[in-house]
Design a protein around this nucleic acid. Sequence first.
DNA 1: GTTGGGTTTGACCGAACGGTTAACATATGC
DNA 2: GCATATGTTAACCGTTCGGTCAAACCCAAC
Lengths: 208, 208
Amino acid sequence: MARRRAKKRDESVRANQILTAADALFGEQGYDAISVRDVAEAAGVNKALVFYYFDNKEALFERVMARYYAAHEQALRDALAEDGTVAERLHRLMDGYVDFIATHQNFPRFVQQQVASRGPALTLIGENLAGLQRFIEQALGDLVPATGPLAARQFFLTFSASVINHFTYAEALAPAWGTDPLSAEGIAERRAHLHWLVDALLAALEKA
Amino acid sequence: MARRRAKKRDESVRANQILTAADALFGEQGYDAISVRDVAEAAGVNKALVFYYFDNKEALFERVMARYYAAHEQALRDALAEDGTVAERLHRLMDGYVDFIATHQNFPRFVQQQVASRGPALTLIGENLAGLQRFIEQALGDLVPATGPLAARQFFLTFSASVINHFTYAEALAPAWGTDPLSAEGIAERRAHLHWLVDALLAALEKA
DNA sequence: GTTGGGTTTGACCGAACGGTTAACATATGC
DNA sequence: GCATATGTTAACCGTTCGGTCAAACCCAAC
């Protein structure tokens, strides 16, 4: 009974209203550009209620991020669950990453915001990236050396950047491209490019 | 004489003190996280003087960005001036881009900040990216189709992301990597990876 | 029908924000 | 040496910020 009440506070309708509003606003304009008043107003809730459910603005933001990390890790784990050839595993990994980001487009925005402005979530992001890197290292196996320009970490950076920036730079690129990079066709084209990229790099690796 | 005085205001020692301080602070913590007071204090100048030399905070930021764009365009133009094989041209372009960003590390931070938070400089950045894309299209020539997953714009995004994110994510990656990505060795390793990347992709393109 | 605990609110707080102003300093031209 | 334009300052302005608080509200349990 006591436990049920304690849980209630976390899962309450209000708390989720606030989290959803905060997610949308922070994602759109950035943490610093959004006030707690903005969040409360968008959530249709009194400002004091935000502080009733969350310790402060920063804790609210961390809770917004936390929702993504659980889903993020699960998505990647699923993508690498079954085995197969290196190419198959990497294709699945890229697909899983694209899918995850495509359905959670605010997530990479948060990451870039934090990284570019040295936000408080930077260490958390670092740990998350390290985990992601381990997936790539695992998938590449002993196909690449431990250090140097062909090290797994270099491929990780190239791959993750190629996925993430498609979404984060989409709005800036849209005018130059004819089509919208975030449309279904735009994402499909990018996905096909990423698959080709993986195959091309694997071919080059095997030749050496 | 009148012109000399008008120019003086732009090139004054004070104005440059303020611009340099604003550059460092905005780059470190982001536009919204820095107050005009912070800038004035770091520049060793009275806050009102900032408004004497610049219309407002946003205009100050735009002037900080403007200093980069001139240098940026020149650096790329130089990198593509001489001709040669496609591989040579792309290597030079990558080197030029890496060099420019390595010596102006705040620049990609500004870009990511603006892009991730839909800042006012977004359209300016879009035009800049479009120009950069044209360089890649020019270098790739008729090696790639006009549309689809192997279109020049896809390669542009992959290349630029692979360069930019090395610098913007360096701080988050440093713990997972043994070395510091921003050290001379770290940058050299990335540069070597990028060269290998270009060669691998060109080899795959020519095979098709 | 009243008590009591979780929930919600409006009113309030000090601090910091971007920006202004009027006075003061300094150099320049005559 | 005086007038004039430029450079610099401290003090101040209204507004918004993150955060607090006591009172009101709601509703289930007795």
